[in-house]
Design a protein around this nucleic acid. Structure first.
Lengths: 147, 147
DNA sequence: TCGCAATTGATAATCATTATCAATTATGAA
DNA sequence: TTCATAATTGATAATGATTATCAATTGCGA
């Protein structure tokens, strides 16, 4: 477990305790997966990952716990129009993503020119900005070569 | 009908003819709404707008024609995780939006710092970038005051 | 004017997500 | 440690936007 994963897991546990809700094995395992997994896993991927430790864990349980963790502010939901949301428990705040249209791979890119965008938008539109979503869609290196 | 609306409508008609498909009254009316409407209308909004001219027009017809126009590359779909996609027939290419979390209003902001973002992402990630999606979420001036 | 493929309206099907509910379990007090 | 009880789970039904299906209608070229 990496330094970041440990820290993320600890924060989730802390928030869970403060909320007064229960620490079930399934819940803790889901938090662990979200803390460790860098692939921006889907509900299906998380469920699959947990089948070893919890054979027969319900999809409903995964959905419910992700909802809870989201309400605690400890996971970022990356939703798409057609369904199949992806989750980022390591950086639970707005940040850009690059999505492969072919294989679904998602990475967190560097983006220096992001700096003052939100400020610029707020100033120009009069909106009070709470969050943003920035996705780039294309073909990852592997899928480019495969063509 | 504004200059832009006329032009957008003409382009859609042109592409439609080149595709060999039929020019039905419903189809033309949907193109007209997409060309004129600046509110990034939803399917429901488009349908409502058309009820005057086409009482009883089917939701399915609106969905189908939007799909067609999208395949012609003449409307931008702004989809959201929970459904309720919005459509922009005036700027059918990637551009940023500001979305009000309260009333659903969507505007097209100015954003100078957008410039070389796509290029920067492509260079840094190795992806071949095809499109992007940039949304800012917050409260519009009207909804801010209402609080 | 005809013939036919495309289109429409009505409606059923799909599918990810959410809600429901009986059985089980975590947790704090005695 | 045992109990009481509210929270949680697993199974499954419900939801709701979007898509597919199909018989009847219509645009359009010959």
């Amino acid at each position: 477990m990496s330094r970041l994963a440990k820290e993320r897991y600890a924060v989730m546990i802390e928030k869970l305790k403060r909320s007064g809700l229960k620490s079930t094995p399934q819940r803790l395992a889901i938090m662990r997966v979200l803390s460790e997994n860098k692939e921006h896993p889907s509900v299906e991927a998380i469920n699959k990952r947990l089948q070893k430790k919890f054979p027969g864990i319900s999809q409903a349980t995964v959905y419910r716990n992700i909802m809870l963790i989201k309400s605690l502010g400890e996971v970022l939901e990356i939703g798409f129009a057609g369904g199949g949301s992806r989750y980022d428990g390591r950086k639970p705040y707005s940040h850009p993503h690059v999505v492969c249209l072919e294989c679904g791979k998602i990475i967190d890119p560097e983006l220096a020119s992001l700096r003052d965008m939100t400020r610029e938008i707020a100033a120009g539109s009069g909106f009070e900005i709470k969050s943003f979503r920035l996705d780039f869609f294309g073909l990852c290196p592997a899928c480019r070569n495969r063509k």
